[in-house]
Computed example of a mutant assay.
Amino acid sequence: MPETFVDLGSVNAPSGVLVLGMAGWIDHWRVLGQPLSVCARAAASSGGGHLREWLCEAVAVPAADDRPLRVRASTSPSPFDEEPAIATLEISLGLRWPETVGRSVRVRLGDLPVDRCGMVIGDASGLDAWTGMNNEPADGLADVTYWGRYADEARAEFGGERIAQYGVDGPRGWLDLPLAEAAARAAELTAWRDRLHGKGLMVSIDKHTDFYRFRRAGWHHPLRVGAIEVGGGQVLGIEWDQGDHSMRHRGERDAGRVYPVTVEADEGGEMVMRWTIPPYDFNDEDE
């Protein structure tokens, strides 16, 4: 049976090089050695390839620099809750498949693990500007959220609106606060909890880094996909359900849980990059 794909959005690659990489490590490339864009350009110059430096991994390919590049996905049931989870990620590259190569050929570029922190698709040069989870936000803002046994008591004391997310009620809290105000609000909640209960209330302060912004952008998407602007271009981020990750992808590369990335021709003769994650076999007792 042919796969059914759903549109996830689009990205652009003004540098002519597109990257699919592990979101938790994008900002580490420049710390470990060369910027991501330098490594990606080298790989793309030979038609594309796999990049790896310590725990940082990505695949880079040449792509059209003058148009949006469509991103689609097929799904299969998650072993965690049987909800749809990404099975094949397909990214249009905006380039014609070479006439000298048969359309049935699949060029394998390497493989990637599913990063527990999510995956990012975007322009290689633009991603050099990516701010990771430990960086400071460019807009100087943060979100404060809280949840747990004493959340209703905390709301009566401090307020805070319900922050809806797809499929769940979500925590309560405040969005888009200046950093100093966010830190003070989180400190008040924590001090109140410690004084009255000692535990039973979780409090989180999330700075508006690119890492956090892509996760927030996907709050209302059934596959946790969100689009943000980074380095002047549109980037798509995909956050994985933690239950699904734990059952299918936990251990990542160290456990051999990596999945092939290929370049192939689509039905119209254009190049696409595909990342294929085999469906979970519910009948396999070894899984």
Rank of each mutant, 00 (worst) to 15 (best):
D194H: 12
F214Y: 14
P178L: 12
A182G: 00
D194E: 15
V168M: 02
G198L: 03
P178V: 10
D194A: 13
L196E: 15
K207F: 00
D176E: 07
L189G: 09
V203Y: 09
T209E: 04
R213H: 03
P178C: 15
L196K: 13
K199A: 08
G200K: 15
D210K: 00
R172N: 09
R193C: 05
G173K: 03
H197G: 10
L196H: 14
L177P: 04
A183F: 07
F214P: 05
A182L: 01
R193P: 02
L177G: 01
R193S: 06
L179N: 11
G170Y: 03
D206E: 15
S204H: 15
K199F: 01
V203E: 12
T190W: 06
L196F: 09
Y212L: 06
A184S: 13
W192Y: 07
F214T: 02
Y212K: 08
G200N: 15
A186D: 03
A180D: 11
D176A: 14
A184W: 03
M202T: 15
M202V: 07
G173Q: 05
G200I: 10
R215D: 10
W192S: 09
A180Q: 05
R185N: 04
R216C: 10
R216V: 11
H208A: 02
E181K: 04
G198S: 02
R216L: 10
L177M: 07
K207T: 02
R216N: 07
L189M: 08
P171K: 12
A191S: 13
K199W: 00
H208Y: 03
D210W: 00
A182K: 00
P178M: 12
M202S: 15
R215P: 05
H208G: 10
I205K: 13
Y212P: 00
K207G: 01
D210P: 01
Y212T: 07
G200C: 11
R213N: 11
L179Y: 05
H208T: 04
A180Y: 00
D194T: 13
R213T: 02
R172F: 11
S204I: 04
P171D: 08
